[in-house]
């Protein structure tokens, strides 16, 4: 059974067709890259999967570990193990990073029937994971994403991913706004979490992220549908010929 399965997904925004019957199957242990030009439906796809209000499917279905997501709200999807690393992480003024993380982790643990972590145990665990991500303690004391640099925001996203241990992670344009050094740190953090039990879907415009997070499969998204799938070499082809060549050939 695939960890994530999208079956013939159709979605409209403001009466405009955005996803036009998209299907995708992601098994555990796999990393998939979805590449596409601007306006191809990449962000819509990630919001649809995460269950954002207003991004409900018109038809088709999505399954997480065989369970349909149709009637599942965003928070329940998250607790069930679906994680979205945001392209633009949102600022929460006055909300401390550590307490935010703890609420998030304990919501997931509660859902999994695990014991919630007390403050001390949690801080210890968070610091351990944070140091691997080159996230300083000081950053966890600050309000979530407030005054963070682009690189800090993305590192904090991946730190949350590491703490929540999701089944399926969707990384939405995680490379945007990152310089080469930050890109490497964030990618290392993601690679660290690759294992046989989970799956990662990387959504990106540029090939360069895929030099660091090497996918098993690459899909080209254009006009609301996957028009071509292949291995890592497909990303290089995009880099060389642009999307136009691929789209025209399809």
């Amino acid at each position: 059974m695939p960890l994530l399965e999208i079956k013939n997904a159709k979605l409209k925004l403001d009466d405009k067709d955005i996803l036009k019957g998209l299907s995708l199957s992601v098994n555990s242990g796999e990393v998939h890259a979805i590449m596409g030009p601007n306006g191809s439906g990449k962000s819509t796809l990630s919001y649809m999967l995460a269950g954002r209000d207003g991004y409900e499917l018109e038809s088709g279905e999505v399954f997480l570990e065989g369970q349909s997501l149709s009637d599942m709200e965003a928070d329940k999807r998250a607790r069930s193990g679906l994680f979205l690393a945001f392209q633009y992480p949102v600022e929460l003024p006055g909300v401390g990073g550590m307490s935010f993380l703890r609420e998030a982790v304990n919501s997931r643990r509660k859902f999994l029937g695990e014991e919630e972590l007390d403050h001390l145990a949690f801080v210890k665990e968070a610091r351990k994971v944070a140091s691997k991500m080159f996230v300083k303690d000081e950053m966890l004391k600050r309000a979530v994403n407030v005054g963070f640099s682009g690189g800090e925001k993305k590192r904090f996203e991946i730190l949350q991913m590491a703490m929540l241990m999701p089944k399926v992670s969707i990384l939405d344009e995680t490379d945007s706004g990152l310089d080469v050094d930050a890109l490497k740190i964030v990618s290392d953090g993601v690679n660290e979490q690759r294992n046989e039990e989970n799956a990662i879907v990387v959504i990106t415009h540029y090939q360069r992220l895929l030099d660091y997070i090497v996918p098993d499969f690459v899909h080209i998204l254009s006009d609301g549908n996957i028009i071509k799938s292949g291995g890592p070499e497909l990303a290089l082809e995009v880099e060389k010929n642009g999307y136009v060549g691929l789209i025209n050939a399809a």
Binding site: A50, G51, R52, D53, E73, A74, D75, A78, R79, F83, L84, F86, P89, V90, L92, P93, G94, V95, G96, S99, F100, E103, A104, S107, R108, F111, A143, Q160, L164
Partner: peptide, 21 residues
């Protein structure tokens, strides 16, 4: 939505944001 995506329910999220404020 950011809070919901981290597994917090609407009430937890509101409370967190308001208390931050």
């Amino acid at each position: 939505f950011y809070c919901l995506q981290r597994g917090l329910d609407t009430e937890q999220a509101t409370s967190l944001i308001v208390n931050g404020f």
